[in-house]
């Protein structure tokens, strides 16, 4: 589904390679964890999936399309197939839970009927049924991340990219989010998770890709955190 072929990334300003000759394949319905220290290149690798970054050399494929060759015009359609969640949630403070989730559908051009049908469903799935009229500031960190997750999923993406989604959360919330990610994965969505939370990685025991200094140093099908 996702394929990195000889991908390198050099930032011209720093003249330092962030990614060095990455070759990696991610299959449909897989749950992949990317681990490594800060600066190992996890985020850059993820950003290439939703075309926020482009490789300096090499290609990144989404099925048969080269993501790095997508024109600006085709980019939005590509991004609608990808859900994203981040450490900082990226919610709109002046919109409530319902509106934040609906926003993604509005932007994607979905009809009002579809929005009215899908938004409550997804809010229910992430367990915020009773809080859909609350504003982000009235929610806990874990709840905010659930809203972000609902927003990422509401357009039914084929793949969910999660960059340190539990970085700001307490262990209980972290575990709730992880269970949601696993559930989403069971429903058929590919999940790519970058984290440096050792417990999380060890408990879920899925494919673990370890990165260091821009290189993949280990790729285990049922791995443990071992850096």
């Amino acid at each position: 589904m996702i394929k990195y072929h000889k991908v390198s990334k050099v930032y011209s300003r720093q003249d330092k390679a962030v990614l060095k000759d990455i070759n990696l394949e991610i299959q449909e319905r897989e749950f992949v964890t990317l681990v490594g220290y800060s600066g190992a290149g996890k985020s850059t690798l993820l950003k290439m999936i939703y075309a926020e970054e482009r490789p300096t050399s090499g290609d990144v494929y989404f099925y048969k399309t080269k993501i790095n060759k997508l024109s600006r015009r085709k980019l939005p359609k590509h991004r609608q197939q990808i859900g994203t969640v981040f450490q900082d949630y990226k919610l709109l403070p002046q919109k409530n839970v319902w509106q934040n989730v609906a926003f993604a559908m509005e932007v994607a051009g979905k009809s009002e009927e579809e929005i009215a049908e899908d938004v409550p469903q997804i809010i229910d799935i992430v367990g915020l049924k009773n809080k859909s009229h609350k504003y982000p500031e009235e929610l806990s960190g874990g709840e905010q991340q659930k809203v972000a997750l609902a927003r990422a999923l509401v357009n039914r993406p084929k793949i969910l990219v999660a960059d340190e989604p539990t970085g700001n959360l307490d262990p209980i919330s972290t575990w709730e989010i992880m269970q949601l990610l696993l559930k989403i994965n069971e429903y058929g969505t590919t999940v790519v998770l970058a984290t440096h939370d050792k417990d999380v990685v060890n408990r879920i025991a899925r494919r673990v890709i370890s990165m260091d200094k821009g290189k993949i140093i280990k790729d285990d099908a049922h791995g443990r955190y071992c850096i």
Binding site: P76, H78, R79, T84, V107, A108
Partner: peptide, 16 residues
């Protein structure tokens, strides 16, 4: 800018 960032992230067209 936050709204714009999110719009772009969830695949809002350039027109949108």
């Amino acid at each position: 800018r936050k709204e714009i960032e999110i719009m772009k992230l969830v695949g809002g067209s350039n027109f949108f």
